[in-house]
Design a protein around this nucleic acid. Structure first.
Lengths: 194, 194, 194, 194
DNA sequence: CATGAATGAGACTTCATTCAT
DNA sequence: TATGAATGAAGTCTCATTCAT
């Protein structure tokens, strides 16, 4: 991807995050980065390509985080935390991208977009689930609950935190609030039967 | 609200849930219920009024659930579960309305809508928080964690469940899955120090 | 014409005078007099009938003024003044009707309306011209100028006064200002060669 | 202003003059100059901008006439005549613009338009009044009448002439008729007491 | 006499996109 | 690469009018 393309994708995300998907028009995107509408078509063949690009951008940065996570670390929990913290770093760097993770709408326009987004979501889910499973195997994470439910608790609470951050217009420190949330998550997930 | 108005609101929600906010056009809404576009304007002054109506509809049914919850019940946890189960009943009856609870976009078009939606969200949060607090006071719910984090866990995991249900096109039983989630939530929230 | 019909015509004129012909919609007229749009159609078959009614209303009150003017009065000038004063009385009683006399637009929608309005204008012109002619015959009015030019001066200056009154939202006394204008008109029209 | 913009403004004026303000629709304007409706929005942001443009166009050509008038000419009357003749030249070149000067309706749609039009009218009035005043000071114009009344006579009679020309669909020679009117105006305005 | 509900046509405007330059 | 000018389709909304009640 060229710099211009990334510039366009970021401008698009910002617009959507600020005023909703409907504000993400070719006209708005173009004027956001000081170009003509026609000029955008030098960089993307169509608006759908831009949407696809956004998923790609998000998906890539997401998968990039996975690489830093080692399945060999004895503590699955600390790897899980590390994973989320890496995500948070990205969000603090470019807050509007949180919207991509939270919006139900942005990719509801056609089936190809839906599928493309679903894939990314699925990979993410599988990755977290595998961490939880490993934690349970090692008796670090409680085994009296189903992994999928623990997954719902971890990702769900994090997503709600993100939603609150978004609705508060990124005014509080996402990292600090997450540290607070994590304390509870850790307490709650840990295997206390030992 | 007249029957027609409710019919319009429900058609609007269905459209948005199916194909995104952008599909919720006056033309689509009208043809969904077999009317012309002009006819809609007999029932709502503008599209914004329809959006406002949707918030109202949702907010009302939400607040209606509160009434069934007693603060006198010795178990806060069971009241919390009851509250969510009531919500679920509504969702199973009219699944698309789940979208209203999950969509970031639908009310991002103007400030009045945002504020109106924020109010409803706030009331909901306060209500659940008060239940958690009561549970902690009675030593039913663990007190080693902050209420606001427990809230994030409860509502967050439920919201994620809802999101999964929505993305699965309502194919699984929301109630059954919630019962499964609740088992974990209960285990996790309960005060085990006794 | 029934009372309701007159009520409708007057409301229509008021609307047009206040916000332009485009504000004179069936909806506005109806709500101005506290009726439904449908109800208007009990009193007029169509909007054109309302426009036609307005011309009629104006034309009638105009021709009514003619009746009070005697061609036998030795002074044509005083009869001319009397004619205008009678018009002014009507205008002070129902100021918005001045708009009908001044608007180029109101009857430009179709040929029948145009013709109907033109007739009324023509009669008015002929009547004033005949007064001027009589004044010239009697050597009361200067004969060194063509009647049609004197007519332009008299009616033109009066129409401009009316326009000023209209643009000032009827804030000054039309009668007083006309008395002032008339002094000049009289001076100017009188035959001074005697 | 670009050529296209002027083309649009002129087409708009022509439409309004021919069939009334209500015929001056975006669709009509566009098809008058062989464009689509959407294309107009490249040249004007909204219909109001077109209306504003019309005032500007008229106001500019009007003020341009002022420049040719010298306050140093010994005869105020001849300068006054020259001013009107210049206006007439413009009208004969582009007859429909007379409608702008005569229409009460065209700018009644919102306050900003009203104010903008009122300013132009005011300047025009002040300019003519100053000429009349100068004529009186030099004993060229009769002093037994108030300037504001003489103004009403001059501008009023000219406006009525214009109205007649307009209602006659520009069939007679505006210049010739004005020459005829001017003879009377001159006779009438001149100071004869010398 | 009056209303509530509806409609087809058409108003203004914005959308994504194209193409010659 | 980029722009200016254009377009067909679609968006929200208002218009005059109709008709069953």
């Amino acid at each position: 991807m060229t710099d211009r393309q990334i510039e366009i994708l970021e401008a698009s995300v910002k617009l959507a995050a600020k005023n909703g998907v409907r504000a993400m028009t070719i006209k708005n995107i173009a004027s956001e980065i000081g170009l003509t509408e026609a000029a955008l078509y030098r960089h993307f063949q169509s608006k759908r390509e831009i949407l696809l690009g956004i998923i790609q951008l998000f998906s890539l940065s997401s998968q990039n985080d996975f690489k830093a996570i080692s399945m060999k670390n004895p503590s699955a929990l600390s790897e899980l935390k590390k994973l989320i913290l890496r995500r948070i770093e990205q969000f603090e760097h470019f807050p509007e991208i949180a919207y991509i993770m939270l919006s139900l709408d942005i990719f509801m326009q056609d089936e190809e977009l839906r599928v493309s987004a679903a894939e990314s979501i699925h990979k993410h889910k599988e990755f977290i689930l595998s961490l939880i499973l490993k934690g349970q195997e090692k008796n670090e994470i409680r085994s009296d609950s189903e992994p999928k439910e623990l997954f719902r608790i971890v990702l769900g609470s994090f997503r709600l935190l993100l939603t609150q951050w978004f609705l508060n217009k990124y005014q509080f420190s996402l990292k600090d609030e997450f540290e607070s949330l994590w304390k509870t998550l850790e307490t709650v997930l840990k295997n206390n039967s030992l």
